[in-house]
Computed example of a mutant assay.
Amino acid sequence: MKSKPSEVADDSVRLGMSPSQFMRQLRPEYYSDTNDRSAYVLDGPSLSFHLDTITDRNQTQDFELFCRKLCERVICPNLRPQTGPEGGGDSKVDSETYPVSDEINQTYIGDVKAAGERWAFAFSAKKTWADKVRKDVNGIIDTGRKYDRIICVTSRPARSKDRARLEDELLDKCGVPVTIHDRSWIAKEIIENDRKDIAFNYLGVGQEITDRLRLGPTDYSRTQQLEDAEAALSNPEAFTGLEVQRASEALIAAKLSRGLERARTDTDGRFLRAIRFAKDGGTFRQQLEARYEYLWIAIWWYDDLALANESYDDLADFALKADSAKNVEFLCNLMQAFCSAVIHGHLTREDVKFDERTSALIAALRRWRLIGIDRTTGWNRRFPFFF
Protein backbone atom coordinates (compact mmCIF):
# COMPACT_ATOMS: atom_id res chain seq x y z
CA MET A 1 0.00 0.00 0.00
CA LYS A 2 1.38 3.38 -0.99
CA SER A 3 1.97 5.97 1.69
CA LYS A 4 -0.03 9.13 1.66
CA PRO A 5 1.85 12.34 0.78
CA SER A 6 1.42 13.62 4.33
CA GLU A 7 2.91 10.41 5.72
CA VAL A 8 5.93 10.68 3.41
CA ALA A 9 6.44 14.28 4.46
CA ASP A 10 6.18 13.31 8.14
CA ASP A 11 8.78 10.57 7.61
CA SER A 12 11.19 12.98 5.93
CA VAL A 13 10.90 15.35 8.88
CA ARG A 14 11.23 12.61 11.49
CA LEU A 15 14.24 10.89 9.93
CA GLY A 16 17.66 12.38 10.43
CA MET A 17 20.41 13.04 7.92
CA SER A 18 20.84 10.35 5.28
CA PRO A 19 24.18 8.53 4.99
CA SER A 20 25.00 10.08 1.61
CA GLN A 21 24.31 13.60 2.90
CA PHE A 22 26.57 13.03 5.88
CA MET A 23 29.43 11.59 3.82
CA ARG A 24 29.20 14.35 1.22
CA GLN A 25 29.77 16.90 3.95
CA LEU A 26 32.48 14.89 5.69
CA ARG A 27 34.39 13.70 2.61
CA PRO A 28 33.38 15.74 -0.46
CA GLU A 29 36.56 14.60 -2.23
CA TYR A 30 35.07 11.10 -2.49
CA TYR A 31 32.32 12.37 -4.79
CA SER A 32 32.13 13.89 -8.25
CA ASP A 33 33.28 17.50 -8.63
CA THR A 34 31.60 17.98 -12.02
CA ASN A 35 28.64 20.36 -12.18
CA ASP A 36 26.18 20.75 -15.02
CA ARG A 37 26.43 24.27 -16.41
CA SER A 38 23.93 26.05 -18.59
CA ALA A 39 25.26 27.97 -21.56
CA TYR A 40 23.16 30.37 -23.62
CA VAL A 41 23.50 30.87 -27.35
CA LEU A 42 22.43 34.26 -28.72
CA ASP A 43 23.92 36.55 -31.36
CA GLY A 44 23.63 40.31 -31.81
CA PRO A 45 21.44 40.35 -34.96
CA SER A 46 18.87 37.99 -33.37
CA LEU A 47 18.67 40.12 -30.25
CA SER A 48 18.41 43.32 -32.30
CA PHE A 49 15.56 41.93 -34.39
CA HIS A 50 13.76 40.71 -31.28
CA LEU A 51 14.03 44.14 -29.65
CA ASP A 52 12.89 45.86 -32.84
CA THR A 53 9.70 43.79 -32.95
CA ILE A 54 8.77 43.90 -29.26
CA THR A 55 5.59 45.91 -29.85
CA ASP A 56 4.56 43.73 -32.81
CA ARG A 57 4.43 40.72 -30.48
CA ASN A 58 2.75 42.65 -27.66
CA GLN A 59 5.72 41.97 -25.36
CA THR A 60 5.96 45.41 -23.80
CA GLN A 61 5.41 44.11 -20.27
CA ASP A 62 7.98 41.37 -20.83
CA PHE A 63 10.40 44.05 -22.02
CA GLU A 64 9.85 46.11 -18.88
CA LEU A 65 10.59 43.08 -16.70
CA PHE A 66 13.64 42.30 -18.82
CA CYS A 67 14.92 45.87 -18.43
CA ARG A 68 14.45 45.82 -14.67
CA LYS A 69 16.35 42.54 -14.37
CA LEU A 70 19.11 43.88 -16.59
CA CYS A 71 19.39 47.08 -14.56
CA GLU A 72 19.48 45.06 -11.37
CA ARG A 73 22.40 43.07 -12.74
CA VAL A 74 24.33 45.99 -14.27
CA ILE A 75 23.44 49.21 -12.45
CA CYS A 76 22.07 48.43 -8.99
CA PRO A 77 20.11 45.49 -7.59
CA ASN A 78 18.01 47.45 -5.10
CA LEU A 79 15.12 48.10 -7.52
CA ARG A 80 11.52 48.01 -6.41
CA PRO A 81 9.13 46.39 -8.92
CA GLN A 82 6.09 48.51 -9.74
CA THR A 83 2.61 47.06 -9.51
CA GLY A 84 -0.26 48.16 -11.65
CA PRO A 85 -2.16 47.29 -14.82
CA GLU A 86 0.10 49.04 -17.34
CA GLY A 87 3.40 50.88 -17.36
CA GLY A 88 3.95 50.91 -13.63
CA GLY A 89 0.42 51.90 -12.67
CA ASP A 90 0.00 55.36 -11.14
CA SER A 91 3.58 55.87 -9.93
CA LYS A 92 4.77 57.21 -13.33
CA VAL A 93 7.95 55.16 -13.06
CA ASP A 94 8.63 51.60 -14.14
CA SER A 95 10.99 51.03 -11.23
CA GLU A 96 12.86 52.94 -8.55
CA THR A 97 15.52 52.30 -5.96
CA TYR A 98 14.89 51.62 -2.30
CA PRO A 99 17.33 52.63 0.45
CA VAL A 100 20.02 50.23 1.60
CA SER A 101 21.98 50.48 4.85
CA ASP A 102 25.62 51.52 4.77
CA GLU A 103 26.66 48.19 6.28
CA ILE A 104 25.71 46.21 3.16
CA ASN A 105 25.76 48.71 0.31
CA GLN A 106 29.31 47.70 -0.63
CA THR A 107 27.97 44.34 -1.79
CA TYR A 108 26.00 45.95 -4.59
CA ILE A 109 27.12 45.96 -8.19
CA GLY A 110 27.48 49.29 -9.92
CA ASP A 111 27.29 52.77 -8.39
CA VAL A 112 27.01 52.56 -4.59
CA LYS A 113 25.25 55.93 -4.60
CA ALA A 114 22.13 54.02 -5.56
CA ALA A 115 22.07 52.64 -2.02
CA GLY A 116 21.39 56.06 -0.50
CA GLU A 117 19.87 58.07 -3.34
CA ARG A 118 16.49 57.79 -4.98
CA TRP A 119 16.69 56.87 -8.64
CA ALA A 120 13.78 56.50 -11.06
CA PHE A 121 13.73 54.11 -14.02
CA ALA A 122 11.57 54.25 -17.15
CA PHE A 123 11.48 51.57 -19.86
CA SER A 124 10.02 51.91 -23.32
CA ALA A 125 9.82 50.08 -26.65
CA LYS A 126 8.16 52.86 -28.66
CA LYS A 127 9.68 53.84 -31.99
CA THR A 128 9.57 57.56 -31.17
CA TRP A 129 11.99 57.03 -28.33
CA ALA A 130 12.95 60.69 -27.85
CA ASP A 131 9.34 61.84 -27.40
CA LYS A 132 8.70 58.94 -25.03
CA VAL A 133 11.75 59.83 -22.93
CA ARG A 134 10.57 63.45 -22.64
CA LYS A 135 7.09 62.30 -21.65
CA ASP A 136 8.41 59.85 -19.07
CA VAL A 137 10.79 62.35 -17.50
CA ASN A 138 8.10 65.06 -17.32
CA GLY A 139 5.71 62.59 -15.71
CA ILE A 140 8.32 61.58 -13.14
CA ILE A 141 9.11 65.21 -12.27
CA ASP A 142 5.39 66.07 -11.99
CA THR A 143 4.98 63.49 -9.20
CA GLY A 144 6.84 65.88 -6.91
CA ARG A 145 9.12 63.15 -5.61
CA LYS A 146 12.72 64.20 -5.13
CA TYR A 147 14.60 61.87 -7.45
CA ASP A 148 18.38 62.24 -7.61
CA ARG A 149 18.69 60.57 -11.01
CA ILE A 150 16.47 59.32 -13.82
CA ILE A 151 17.51 56.41 -16.04
CA CYS A 152 15.62 55.62 -19.23
CA VAL A 153 16.05 52.43 -21.26
CA THR A 154 14.70 52.13 -24.80
CA SER A 155 14.69 49.19 -27.15
CA ARG A 156 15.31 51.50 -30.11
CA PRO A 157 18.69 52.51 -31.55
CA ALA A 158 19.70 56.09 -30.79
CA ARG A 159 22.68 58.07 -32.06
CA SER A 160 25.12 59.15 -29.38
CA LYS A 161 24.79 62.80 -30.45
CA ASP A 162 21.00 62.71 -30.13
CA ARG A 163 21.11 61.01 -26.74
CA ALA A 164 23.65 63.45 -25.35
CA ARG A 165 21.67 66.46 -26.62
CA LEU A 166 18.44 65.15 -25.08
CA GLU A 167 20.15 64.40 -21.76
CA ASP A 168 21.50 67.98 -21.60
CA GLU A 169 18.10 69.37 -22.53
CA LEU A 170 16.31 67.48 -19.78
CA LEU A 171 18.97 68.34 -17.18
CA ASP A 172 18.57 72.05 -17.94
CA LYS A 173 14.78 71.81 -17.87
CA CYS A 174 14.25 69.54 -14.86
CA GLY A 175 17.44 69.92 -12.84
CA VAL A 176 17.81 66.14 -12.50
CA PRO A 177 20.53 64.15 -14.30
CA VAL A 178 18.99 61.88 -16.96
CA THR A 179 20.80 58.88 -18.47
CA ILE A 180 19.46 57.25 -21.65
CA HIS A 181 20.42 53.67 -22.55
CA ASP A 182 19.45 52.46 -26.02
CA ARG A 183 19.62 49.19 -27.92
CA SER A 184 23.39 49.32 -28.32
CA TRP A 185 23.78 49.40 -24.53
CA ILE A 186 21.42 46.46 -24.16
CA ALA A 187 23.29 44.47 -26.82
CA LYS A 188 26.64 45.24 -25.20
CA GLU A 189 25.53 44.10 -21.77
CA ILE A 190 23.73 41.00 -23.04
CA ILE A 191 26.10 39.80 -25.77
CA GLU A 192 29.55 41.18 -24.96
CA ASN A 193 29.27 40.91 -21.19
CA ASP A 194 27.61 37.48 -21.41
CA ARG A 195 24.28 38.12 -19.72
CA LYS A 196 22.36 36.09 -22.29
CA ASP A 197 20.50 34.26 -19.53
CA ILE A 198 18.44 37.41 -18.86
CA ALA A 199 17.33 37.63 -22.50
CA PHE A 200 16.51 33.92 -22.57
CA ASN A 201 14.58 33.89 -19.31
CA TYR A 202 12.63 37.15 -19.67
CA LEU A 203 12.35 37.75 -23.42
CA GLY A 204 12.38 34.16 -24.63
CA VAL A 205 15.12 34.80 -27.18
CA GLY A 206 18.16 32.57 -27.67
CA GLN A 207 18.80 28.95 -26.76
CA GLU A 208 19.83 27.22 -23.55
CA ILE A 209 22.37 24.41 -23.74
CA THR A 210 23.27 22.27 -20.74
CA ASP A 211 26.97 21.50 -20.91
CA ARG A 212 27.66 18.19 -19.18
CA LEU A 213 31.16 17.84 -20.60
CA ARG A 214 32.98 20.28 -18.33
CA LEU A 215 34.64 17.89 -15.91
CA GLY A 216 35.99 19.01 -12.59
CA PRO A 217 39.76 18.54 -12.15
CA THR A 218 39.36 15.44 -9.97
CA ASP A 219 36.81 13.88 -12.30
CA TYR A 220 39.07 14.55 -15.28
CA SER A 221 41.81 12.49 -13.66
CA ARG A 222 39.34 9.78 -12.65
CA THR A 223 37.96 9.59 -16.18
CA GLN A 224 41.41 9.07 -17.66
CA GLN A 225 42.24 6.36 -15.13
CA LEU A 226 38.89 4.63 -15.68
CA GLU A 227 39.40 4.59 -19.44
CA ASP A 228 42.86 3.06 -19.01
CA ALA A 229 41.55 0.46 -16.58
CA GLU A 230 38.63 -0.50 -18.81
CA ALA A 231 40.90 -0.75 -21.84
CA ALA A 232 43.12 -3.18 -19.96
CA LEU A 233 40.21 -5.22 -18.58
CA SER A 234 38.65 -5.52 -22.02
CA ASN A 235 41.83 -7.10 -23.40
CA PRO A 236 41.61 -10.88 -22.80
CA GLU A 237 45.40 -11.23 -23.07
CA ALA A 238 46.30 -8.41 -20.66
CA PHE A 239 46.05 -10.44 -17.44
CA THR A 240 46.97 -13.95 -18.54
CA GLY A 241 48.46 -15.57 -15.46
CA LEU A 242 47.92 -12.36 -13.51
CA GLU A 243 44.56 -13.02 -11.89
CA VAL A 244 45.49 -11.16 -8.69
CA GLN A 245 46.39 -8.03 -10.65
CA ARG A 246 43.19 -8.34 -12.68
CA ALA A 247 41.12 -8.43 -9.48
CA SER A 248 42.88 -5.29 -8.21
CA GLU A 249 42.34 -3.47 -11.52
CA ALA A 250 38.64 -4.38 -11.54
CA LEU A 251 38.16 -3.01 -8.01
CA ILE A 252 40.02 0.17 -8.92
CA ALA A 253 37.73 0.66 -11.92
CA ALA A 254 34.66 0.18 -9.70
CA LYS A 255 35.92 2.75 -7.19
CA LEU A 256 36.65 5.25 -9.98
CA SER A 257 33.13 4.78 -11.32
CA ARG A 258 31.82 5.37 -7.80
CA GLY A 259 33.81 8.59 -7.47
CA LEU A 260 32.53 9.81 -10.84
CA GLU A 261 28.98 9.07 -9.66
CA ARG A 262 28.15 7.17 -12.81
CA ALA A 263 24.73 5.55 -13.07
CA ARG A 264 24.20 3.01 -10.32
CA THR A 265 23.67 0.21 -12.82
CA ASP A 266 27.15 0.90 -14.27
CA THR A 267 28.86 1.18 -10.90
CA ASP A 268 27.12 -1.84 -9.40
CA GLY A 269 28.04 -3.81 -12.49
CA ARG A 270 31.70 -2.93 -12.04
CA PHE A 271 31.64 -3.94 -8.38
CA LEU A 272 29.98 -7.25 -9.21
CA ARG A 273 32.66 -7.80 -11.84
CA ALA A 274 35.32 -7.06 -9.22
CA ILE A 275 33.73 -9.60 -6.88
CA ARG A 276 33.67 -12.20 -9.67
CA PHE A 277 37.30 -11.58 -10.64
CA ALA A 278 38.37 -11.72 -6.99
CA LYS A 279 36.73 -15.13 -6.65
CA ASP A 280 38.43 -16.27 -9.87
CA GLY A 281 42.06 -16.30 -8.79
CA GLY A 282 42.14 -13.39 -6.36
CA THR A 283 43.37 -13.51 -2.79
CA PHE A 284 41.13 -13.94 0.24
CA ARG A 285 41.65 -10.28 1.11
CA GLN A 286 40.64 -9.19 -2.40
CA GLN A 287 37.46 -11.23 -2.20
CA LEU A 288 36.61 -9.72 1.16
CA GLU A 289 37.44 -6.15 0.14
CA ALA A 290 35.42 -6.31 -3.08
CA ARG A 291 32.35 -7.56 -1.21
CA TYR A 292 32.81 -4.94 1.51
CA GLU A 293 33.21 -2.04 -0.93
CA TYR A 294 30.02 -3.10 -2.69
CA LEU A 295 28.11 -2.74 0.58
CA TRP A 296 29.99 0.45 1.49
CA ILE A 297 28.86 2.23 -1.66
CA ALA A 298 25.28 1.02 -1.11
CA ILE A 299 25.25 2.89 2.21
CA TRP A 300 27.21 6.08 1.55
CA TRP A 301 26.31 6.72 -2.08
CA TYR A 302 22.82 5.29 -2.55
CA ASP A 303 21.41 5.24 1.00
CA ASP A 304 20.61 1.57 0.42
CA LEU A 305 20.87 0.45 4.03
CA ALA A 306 18.59 -2.49 3.34
CA LEU A 307 21.08 -4.10 0.93
CA ALA A 308 23.96 -3.67 3.36
CA ASN A 309 21.91 -4.97 6.27
CA GLU A 310 20.72 -8.04 4.37
CA SER A 311 24.23 -8.86 3.13
CA TYR A 312 26.12 -8.24 6.35
CA ASP A 313 25.78 -11.74 7.81
CA ASP A 314 27.19 -13.42 4.70
CA LEU A 315 30.12 -11.00 4.73
CA ALA A 316 30.69 -11.59 8.45
CA ASP A 317 30.73 -15.38 8.02
CA PHE A 318 33.28 -14.98 5.23
CA ALA A 319 35.45 -12.44 7.10
CA LEU A 320 35.69 -14.47 10.29
CA LYS A 321 36.91 -17.58 8.49
CA ALA A 322 40.53 -16.49 8.69
CA ASP A 323 42.36 -15.76 11.92
CA SER A 324 43.23 -12.20 11.00
CA ALA A 325 42.10 -9.16 12.97
CA LYS A 326 42.51 -6.97 9.91
CA ASN A 327 39.45 -8.57 8.34
CA VAL A 328 37.27 -7.42 11.21
CA GLU A 329 37.85 -3.74 10.42
CA PHE A 330 35.35 -4.01 7.55
CA LEU A 331 32.69 -5.44 9.84
CA CYS A 332 33.35 -2.76 12.47
CA ASN A 333 32.94 -0.05 9.84
CA LEU A 334 29.61 -1.45 8.72
CA MET A 335 28.36 -1.78 12.29
CA GLN A 336 29.31 1.82 12.92
CA ALA A 337 27.22 2.81 9.90
CA PHE A 338 24.32 0.76 11.24
CA CYS A 339 24.66 2.50 14.62
CA SER A 340 24.32 5.86 12.90
CA ALA A 341 21.33 4.56 10.95
CA VAL A 342 19.64 3.57 14.21
CA ILE A 343 20.39 6.93 15.81
CA HIS A 344 18.92 8.81 12.85
CA GLY A 345 15.84 6.61 12.69
CA HIS A 346 16.55 4.85 9.39
CA LEU A 347 16.72 1.39 10.98
CA THR A 348 15.91 -0.10 14.37
CA ARG A 349 18.19 -1.91 16.75
CA GLU A 350 16.30 -5.10 15.97
CA ASP A 351 16.67 -4.55 12.21
CA VAL A 352 20.46 -4.53 12.43
CA LYS A 353 20.57 -7.43 14.93
CA PHE A 354 22.75 -5.20 17.04
CA ASP A 355 23.27 -7.43 20.08
CA GLU A 356 23.83 -10.60 18.07
CA ARG A 357 26.29 -9.09 15.60
CA THR A 358 28.30 -7.06 18.09
CA SER A 359 28.58 -10.08 20.40
CA ALA A 360 30.15 -12.04 17.52
CA LEU A 361 32.59 -9.22 16.82
CA ILE A 362 33.54 -8.81 20.47
CA ALA A 363 34.17 -12.54 20.75
CA ALA A 364 36.45 -12.44 17.71
CA LEU A 365 38.35 -9.42 19.00
CA ARG A 366 38.80 -10.99 22.42
CA ARG A 367 40.09 -14.12 20.77
CA TRP A 368 42.81 -12.03 19.09
CA ARG A 369 43.38 -9.97 22.27
CA LEU A 370 42.45 -6.73 20.48
CA ILE A 371 39.78 -5.64 22.91
CA GLY A 372 39.78 -4.87 26.59
CA ILE A 373 36.98 -4.15 29.02
CA ASP A 374 37.39 -1.66 31.84
CA ARG A 375 36.22 -3.73 34.82
CA THR A 376 35.14 -0.64 36.78
CA THR A 377 32.95 0.89 34.06
CA GLY A 378 32.29 -1.99 31.69
CA TRP A 379 33.36 0.32 28.84
CA ASN A 380 34.96 -1.05 25.70
CA ARG A 381 38.21 0.89 25.31
CA ARG A 382 38.91 -0.05 21.70
CA PHE A 383 35.44 -0.06 20.12
CA PRO A 384 33.17 1.98 22.44
CA PHE A 385 30.23 1.99 20.03
CA PHE A 386 29.58 -1.67 20.80
CA PHE A 387 28.20 -0.88 24.27
Rank of each mutant, 00 (worst) to 15 (best):
F121L: 08
R57S: 05
K132C: 03
T283I: 05
P177I: 07
A232F: 04
E86A: 04
D10I: 04
E243C: 06
S3F: 13
R149I: 03
C67P: 12
D94K: 07
I362W: 08
D136T: 02
A306R: 07
K326H: 12
W185F: 09
A238M: 15
D172C: 05
S340H: 01
P157M: 00
K161W: 00
D94S: 05
T143Q: 08
V133H: 01
P384A: 06
Y292Q: 07
S91W: 01
P45I: 05
T34W: 13
R367K: 15
L305S: 09
I252W: 06
A250E: 15
R212T: 14
T267C: 10
Y30W: 14
L215C: 05
T128F: 03
V244C: 04
A115I: 02
G88K: 01
V137L: 07
R145G: 12
I198G: 10
F271T: 03
N35P: 09
A122Y: 05
S311I: 01
P5I: 08
G378W: 11
F354V: 02
D219S: 14
R24F: 09
S160D: 02
T348L: 05
A263Q: 00
L79W: 15
F318P: 01
K326M: 08
P217M: 14
A39T: 13
T358D: 00
I373R: 14
A231F: 04
E96N: 04
L288P: 01
T376S: 10
I186C: 01
D194Y: 10
K127M: 05
M17E: 11
L307G: 06
T223M: 09
S20P: 02
R145Q: 15
H346R: 00
N138P: 03
R156I: 10
E350D: 13
Y40Q: 01
K173H: 01
E117A: 03
T358Y: 06
Q286H: 04
Y294I: 10
S95E: 09
R369E: 02
R195M: 11
I186L: 11
D266Y: 02
Q336V: 11
S20I: 04
